[in-house]
Design a protein around this nucleic acid. Sequence first.
DNA 1: CAAGTCAACTTGTTCTGACATTAAGACTTT
DNA 2: AAAGTCTTAATGTCAGAACAAGTTGACTTG
Lengths: 246, 246
Amino acid sequence: MANNLGLSIDRSSPVPLYHQVVQGIEAAIHSGVLEPGSRLDNEIDLAAQLNLSRPTMRKAMDELVRSGLLVRKRGVGTQVVSSQVRRPLELSSLYDDLTNNGKKPTTEVLSFSHIEADDATLAILQLPAGSKVYHFSRLRKVGGKPLALMENWVRDDIASMDEAMLSAEGLYSILRRGGVNFRLATQRIGAVTANEYQASMLDAAEGSALVTMERTAVDDTGRHIETGHHVYRADSYSFEMTLVQR
Amino acid sequence: MANNLGLSIDRSSPVPLYHQVVQGIEAAIHSGVLEPGSRLDNEIDLAAQLNLSRPTMRKAMDELVRSGLLVRKRGVGTQVVSSQVRRPLELSSLYDDLTNNGKKPTTEVLSFSHIEADDATLAILQLPAGSKVYHFSRLRKVGGKPLALMENWVRDDIASMDEAMLSAEGLYSILRRGGVNFRLATQRIGAVTANEYQASMLDAAEGSALVTMERTAVDDTGRHIETGHHVYRADSYSFEMTLVQR
DNA sequence: CAAGTCAACTTGTTCTGACATTAAGACTTT
DNA sequence: AAAGTCTTAATGTCAGAACAAGTTGACTTG
């Protein structure tokens, strides 16, 4: 059976060939052309069908295996796992996540200051003593409903910012415009019960469950850009992810 | 400066060369030989120093970039990000995590049955109507202190199990012995407040915060092996992870 | 007929080689 | 002296080839 996925490769495109293959197979899986559990042709045939070399084909399949869409087994072949694999947790801001899903988030800046960082923040952001940082807290709402209460500390040598900017857009887009290329983040997810302040801000009952996230983001030059402590209403937000065994 | 990392490659080892390089560089970073922020020699020189080809060297560095230890920038070079990057969330069981950290977990089986799966479970595990599954709930303690309350549904065509087995070891080790090679899992992390039952089992106050996790695990043949709903005491457990931008 | 053996198939690893793209600094020119 | 340009160096992409190592099923043999 010629498992022609109906995908074509544009060699004049600036998009790398292996990435075109990734997108094509992703589309085939999500559209149902490739059903969960079905076997793909072997790497060599697939490469030949698309006029690609095997290393290029393999690199594409590597990415799909890593993202959890495909499963490979030596001596056997490659299978589609499931079309309903969730997107892995991405290195993006809450604001981006929401707008990408068609939501219209609003941001209210509750406090804003440009101050000398305390010792803990200096250590986390790996800044020399006496450095100043932006410190602010924001309330994010979707459809008028409070979703998240966010407190952040950001180094001040990237982009200057003020309350108005933070009200109008997401923190990450401001920083990206300042030339930051985010590369990785470490985060910790846990839970707490809402104290009086959190409850009032999030329009929730005191003692209700909140999801907490602490995150520190690093850019491609190794600079620690920002750290934050966020809390989310547990009835409106949870973290979904796909873990892949290496 | 010859950035010789003092690592050597054993070509007679069954461990792939690229993986030996990964382990060597990881060790160099964690031991402090490679300091955070320092630049590595370029790929071609490094490959030459170890008598490897550039693709092999690149594949090793790819993995380190993905795991967040290194940062690459075209036209510039490769840098060490930080020695204190946390291990990414791994596809492992709580039991393994605890024993690997030197803890001695105990497990109490609260209920156990071998029943026909309900529709929701059939759908999640992608089983035909009428299939039977193991359904059980367990309480896990560390140092005599309750940590997690776990309810699981497991397909029954892998390994037979009973209360005694589940008391003595982790679910994943039983399944692995039954020939399962776990490949990926999708999970969702959130929060709730403890109800009366959860509070009493976890020795916590009613209304205290709990971290929730729902997980479905898939093996290397695409079978959906088990799904579970776990709750953890928020004061004793949180999820740490490293996100890497592709 | 059952058990072991072997051949075919598929992914896993590794190599050599080439060119493209980006970034930074040195150089030249105005 | 400042601006733009060019060179250099590094990572990014792609090709073609070869062999290694599991898996599976067919075949052979006792």
